[in-house]
Design a protein around this nucleic acid. Structure first.
Lengths: 110, 110
DNA sequence: GGCATCGTCAACCATTTGGTTTAATATACT
DNA sequence: AGTATATTAAACCAAATGGTTGACGATGCC
């Protein structure tokens, strides 16, 4: 049921898809709205969303003619556990992520 | 300097490469020895190792005619931090990883 | 009904990926 | 010197990837 690591990691390997995930951190979005900031066709974004959904990283629900996309962070669990096994890093550094996010979004998180 | 997330995640997206990393968890290895358990040419493994090295996930040092491969877990830091930002998972579960490892290696860790 | 909007499908294209095989290079052994 | 071993390089190939455009099926609005 949980998608395999292949699927999850290769979904994460594309910058467009990671940017989409970052956008969805803030709120659920319709496909068209996800596509808006990208200089790329709607069809291309639609494909990226299909890949993210296939990896379980988002879910999509159609209400009316609008399809809503929602982040599903649990899909990262398996991959995260796998990676952590190598690290024995210092306990996960959320601050570093906040900093990354601020830069990624181009404005400060709330 | 730190390789970007694209490079790291796409390096991790291949099962052969993940298996190589898992092998290197146990000890440093020569290219030929890394290749041994795979049903794949040595050249193919050599390429995989180049990709892993490009992502910073391993380092390679040539001593004599043997090239030693060494895990570089720090390269996972950036990716790990990125992922954790989505999760707010329960604190990293090393036990789950041990279990995974045991299965992956086909024998119990020491 | 008629029109605009939301999203996907299908066909197509260029590039990348993951593998092969054969040859070449460098080091070590006797 | 000659041979064997360790590794990469080069050329090639099939399949996957990430994009495009244009047509199409739903849904909503007047």
């Amino acid at each position: 049921m949980t998608p395999d690591l292949d699927t999850v990691f290769s979904a994460l390997a594309d910058p467009t898809r990671r940017r989409i995930l970052t956008m969805l951190l803030e709120d659920d979005m319709a496909v068209t709205d996800v596509a808006e900031p990208f200089e790329m066709s709607l069809a291309a974004i639609s494909k990226h969303l299909t890949i993210l959904a296939g990896a379980g990283l988002i879910s999509q629900e159609k209400r009316g003619r609008v399809k809503w996309c929602k982040l599903e962070p649990d899909a990262l669990k398996g991959a995260s556990v796998w990676m952590q096994g190598f690290g024995q890093f210092e306990p996960v550094n959320l601050d570093a992520f906040e900093a990354f996010l601020a830069q990624e979004l181009g404005d400060s998180p709330d």
